[in-house]
Design a protein around this nucleic acid. Structure first.
Lengths: 228, 228
DNA sequence: TCACAACCTTGACGCCCGTCAAGCGCGCGT
DNA sequence: ACGCGCGCTTGACGGGCGTCAAGGTTGTGA
């Protein structure tokens, strides 16, 4: 279960991540000095909403969900983070340094954590790094805008189809859900029952065929324009 | 209608805006060199979704709405910007420099526009300014998270009450809507009819009294916990 | 002053999606 | 191998909110 990550491939992962891609050797060494590796079991929490935020993260292996919980206990998945992606970088600049979401592993996972203050020091010394981070955050902001769009301007079916199209493989022939269906349902803000019914409808129309978490796309064109 | 803004109060507005608050005199002068003042009539467009984005903005007087339009023509108001607030700063870092929203004046308004490339040059020279902007953007990101929350985890009544509480005056006795009710309805993602009915319900309960765009709060405690 | 156009309100009705409940299939651990 | 539990599916039902339609109210310009 606890398969350690070899240092060489860890370096490659760090370089893949936008945050670290443009660092020189000395800067990267400084980042790695404050880095910690964590092994998470399936379901294990990483941080919770409201906790003081002193570290940010990158997924090395596995999948992490970011989510919120309503007063009634309903869970809403904000984002699903895979290998090579950073998250919670924005906490460095938040007024009171508290995490704005919860996080937990969807499967056994390895994540790197980084010291926010240390990285802030790097930022203060490197405008170029600042600009990279600004670019990263403007992308996230833009993604959130699109999210709000589809929540308000589009119905449930459209959101599901949109999510599926995002997950298409390079050929556009298959889709690998890679996380439990109820997590995806929460991600697109519907109930598992509704998600199931929408997949059923797509299947009945002959657009897809489902085998567990694997989906075969039978008619890509019709899938893409389903719900207009 | 076209009441020009005196230079002194314009300076004060610029200093109020987070983006410019920490600039030194030389930097501010550079910003003002690339600045343009625009007078907008009610309903006039400022920029549209997808247009090349070379400038960002600050409201000097009036109110600007940022919004999107669905394929069916439905409008969703993302944000309502008032005096002293900047908007569209994030376009400086967007991949292809296109505005991600539309913008239009809700009333006769004065806005300043700034050259994005010029400001980028300032950023490249000033890590402190970068950090200010990063803080600003992380706030926006956080606000969008809360928005997604209330869209998915809360019902229409809750969202309306939440909006009303945001607009309370300092005493908590009155609320000034300051924009047409249908704009607010779109902002909280409901139809004008539903908005009207919810205000009616709050009135029938004796919680508020309505006079046009002005609302008197009769029972603040019950308003705040309406809908739990 | 009158008329028109926005904006807003109110009622009737319907649909989408959530809720509740039952049943199925698969994996996992003892 | 068996049984339990979890994730998923399916059906029946209901409610919240959108849609459609008909007035009412307000402000503005000729």
């Amino acid at each position: 279960m606890h398969t350690p990550i070899p240092p060489a491939s860890l370096d490659r992962l760090l370089r893949q991540c936008h945050l670290f891609a443009s660092l020189d050797e000395a800067q990267l060494a400084q980042v790695k000095a404050g880095m910690r590796l964590l092994q998470l079991d399936e379901g294990q929490r990483l941080f919770d909403f409201g906790q003081p935020a002193e570290r940010f993260y990158m997924v090395a292996a596995g999948r992490i969900k970011l989510f919120r919980v309503s007063q009634e206990g309903d869970e809403k998945v904000i984002e699903i983070i895979g290998p090579g992606k950073s998250f919670a970088e924005a906490v460095m600049f938040m007024a009171r340094h508290h995490y704005p979401v919860n996080s937990a592993a969807l499967e056994p996972s390895t994540v790197c954590s980084f010291d926010a203050q240390g990285f802030l020091a790097l930022l203060r010394a490197s405008p170029q790094l600042c600009l990279t981070l600004l670019g990263e955050m403007s992308m996230r902001l833009h993604a959130r805008l699109n999210e709000i769009d589809s929540l308000t301007l589009q119905n449930a079916t459209f959101r599901v189809v949109h999510y599926l199209c995002d997950q298409l493989d390079e050929n556009g022939r298959t889709i690998d859900l890679s996380v439990p269906k109820n997590v995806i349902a929460s991600r697109v803000s519907i109930k598992p029952e509704t998600f199931s019914r929408i997949l059923r409808a797509l299947t009945d129309e002959g657009i897809i065929r489902i085998e567990g978490r694997h989906i075969e796309v039978l008619d890509l064109v019709r899938l893409q324009r389903y719900g207009h």
